[in-house]
Write a protein that binds this DNA or RNA. Structure first.
Lengths: 185, 185
DNA sequence: GCGATCATGTAATCGGTTACATGATTAT
DNA sequence: ATAATCATGTAACCGATTACATGATCGC
């Protein structure tokens, strides 16, 4: 399981509340690991009672108070241990591919709209990643020399960009194939 | 949930036993949807009792008898309904990316071996996909004209090939970054 | 007033993983 | 003998998803 570790990494990058973590899982960390606030609160509670993280009540005016979590010594140890364990390359779960193969027993043309929708979403996501890259790493407002953490965040983001570009090109291949099957059956 | 639907697609492509399905989930369908035999037997039992699939006991000599499943009319309907529902583009779960960002709080060089291992595995997987493509779609023993089902299987396989190539290139980027951080900190 | 944002949770369900279990046949 | 392959399951656990739930403040 890696949600624990994803949260530890995020809290090491910057301490924060459950709510703030949930927001980060909609961007940044969320580009390669998803989690909802329900999951996050549950894991935070468990990690706190196990002594992996510390809490600090932060009173706020004009906003509800929040609990700011930060990584405790034990959490750092647990993360370091996990970092040294080998993991298996992920097994892919690609629902759209199941649909594409299923289209052989339905109308392939009926899938075109759906594939176009996915193409659109991935194009948006790519634009979003590229904007983030310009803002944080390659643009005029980015730091001139990146530290280790920033270099690593950048290489992960480059992975996301490469993934979106590959996916967009493949979806275009899928669309061409579906159209060909529709026009000359 | 799509395991149901992945099994229906696979059974439409060719009826078979739980064991045979489990084998297909190690190749073919398994390239984009994973499942273990335990899962498969459970789902087959449920789909049978719901009338989505039919069973036929096949006695075999010199091998244990098997149950051959095929898709019933109801199963085809259920699949067709699912094919017409929109789905959301998958949220990525990339454990290695969590590790890479975590390496900022550990020794980045310690990750090099692990990334090399992943690079090796993805290179093997790519070779395996390419061999399958030559065998079934582009080689001299492949059919000259592909039918709709084969065209769709091919475009899905091309997606797997594109994914592996992209991943291999990215892992090389990661390695170069980790080495740079190691030599000039 | 009302919707959006900030902030934190509980409960039910479900799908996936891991471990356990059995038993026949074929090839070395 | 024994390891590998064929063949089918049960049980426990755990993580993820979905639905439900509360309550404050800010801007329109």
């Amino acid at each position: 399981m890696a949600l624990d570790h994803a949260i530890l990494v995020s809290l090491l990058e910057k301490p924060g509340s459950g709510y703030e973590l949930a927001r980060r899982f909609e961007r940044s960390i969320g580009y390669f690991w998803t989690a909802t606030h329900q999951q996050i609160y549950r894991v935070l509670k468990r990690m706190e009672s196990d002594g992996w993280i510390d809490v600090r009540e932060v009173p706020q005016q004009s906003r509800p108070d929040k609990k700011e979590y930060s990584v405790a010594a034990l959490g750092r140890t647990v993360l370091a241990e996990w970092l040294h364990e080998p993991i298996e390359p992920e097994s892919v779960r690609h629902e759209l591919a199941v649909k594409i193969r299923g289209a052989a027993f339905d109308d392939p043309a009926a899938l075109i709209r759906e594939v176009e929708r996915h193409h659109h979403k991935h194009t948006e996501r790519l634009a979003h990643y590229l904007a983030g890259e310009r803002r944080d790493f390659t643009g005029p407002d980015a730091p001139e020399a990146l530290d280790t953490g920033e270099e690593l965040q950048h290489v992960v983001l480059r992975g996301g960009i490469a993934y979106e570009r590959m996916t967009i090109a493949w979806l275009e291949d899928v669309l061409a194939t579906l159209r060909r099957l529709g026009t000359a059956p």
